[in-house]
Computed example of a mutant assay.
Amino acid sequence: MKSSLVRRGGLLAAVVAGVVLAGAAPASAAPGDGSAYGVKVDVSLLGQPAVKAGPLAAASTSGPTTNSTAQVSLTGILTTGVINTEAKRDDNTGTVTAKASTADVGLPLLKAALGTVGVKAVEAVCTATQAGVTGSTTLVGANLGSIGAVDSNPAPNTQIKVAIGPVNVATIILNEQIKNPDGSLTVNALHVKLLGGVVGSLGSGDVIVSSATCGPAAPPMPLASGPGLWIGLGLLGLIAVPVGTRIFRHRRTA
């Protein structure tokens, strides 16, 4: 009889403890993810082999959380200096931040259409909090050849057409912001899209410089606290005391 009561009391206590902990669990079991990279290239230029590279200097919240590359040189397409990336999560708040910064960017890919194109620094940043996901782009010393200087903090999805004569051969997208189906946000600071299939085109494909993706944020996994904790402890006491009393009475009877 004694062992049966002890087992019953232990089982009920375990159930109540499980209820307390379950009540403390957030709706989402894992915080959000984030990632970043410096350069990604996938282009097919007319009369030349396809070129694919990257994502280079990739970082993510699952590791490595930081990364870097000294320089990138893709003949006739892209040159860069140092690339630094990071993607981190604060488990206390669920906040996710991701950032990619690329220095000394050159785009010989566009020389035939615009002349010399260069940017001293290209940075993409995104942040996911409980309030939502936001992103931004910063360009330092940006000069797009014949197009001239551009805003250092361009509006989301700013598009610039690149033409040779009357023919549009490419589109430059600054501060490209893409809302993904999973609720995350991707920020591509600089995205060159080659428009293949048109007369006089340079080729087809994409060049992306400085990309960050994050979110949505998720709450941390706290220990039970607040009213839920006290209610659970109260229930545990209501169960434990009668069981202990019955065991004590049984011992006195024996």
Rank of each mutant, 00 (worst) to 15 (best):
K2G: 11
S3F: 02
R8M: 14
L11T: 12
A13E: 12
V15T: 10
V16L: 00
V20L: 08
L21I: 08
L21N: 04
G23P: 05
P26G: 03
A27S: 11
A30P: 11
P31D: 04
G32K: 06
D33R: 13
S35L: 11
A36V: 02
Y37E: 05
S44I: 07
L46S: 09
V51W: 01
A53Q: 08
A57C: 13
T61H: 01
T65M: 13
T66L: 11
A70N: 10
S73H: 09
I77C: 01
I77W: 00
T80C: 00
G81Y: 04
I83N: 10
N84E: 14
E86Q: 14
E86W: 12
A87V: 09
D90P: 07
D91H: 14
T95E: 14
T95C: 12
V96M: 01
V96S: 03
T102L: 00
D104H: 07
V105F: 00
L109Q: 08
L110H: 04
T116E: 14
C126T: 14
A128T: 02
Q130C: 02
A131D: 13
G132H: 10
V133P: 01
V133R: 05
V133Q: 02
T137D: 03
V140H: 12
G141W: 10
A142L: 01
A142Q: 03
L144A: 02
L144S: 01
I147R: 12
G148I: 06
P156T: 05
Q159I: 14
I160T: 12
A163N: 04
A163C: 01
P166G: 12
V167G: 05
N168V: 14
N168R: 15
N168K: 15
N168Q: 15
E176W: 12
E176Y: 13
Q177H: 11
L185G: 02
T186P: 04
H191K: 15
H191Q: 13
G196A: 05
S201H: 04
S201Q: 09
L202R: 01
S204D: 10
V207A: 01
I208D: 13
A212N: 07
T213K: 07
T213R: 02
M221V: 15
P222Y: 10
G226W: 03
G228E: 12
I231Y: 09
G232Y: 03
G232R: 07
G234W: 08
L236A: 09
P242H: 04
G244T: 08
R249V: 15
H250A: 15
R251G: 09
R252E: 13
T253R: 15
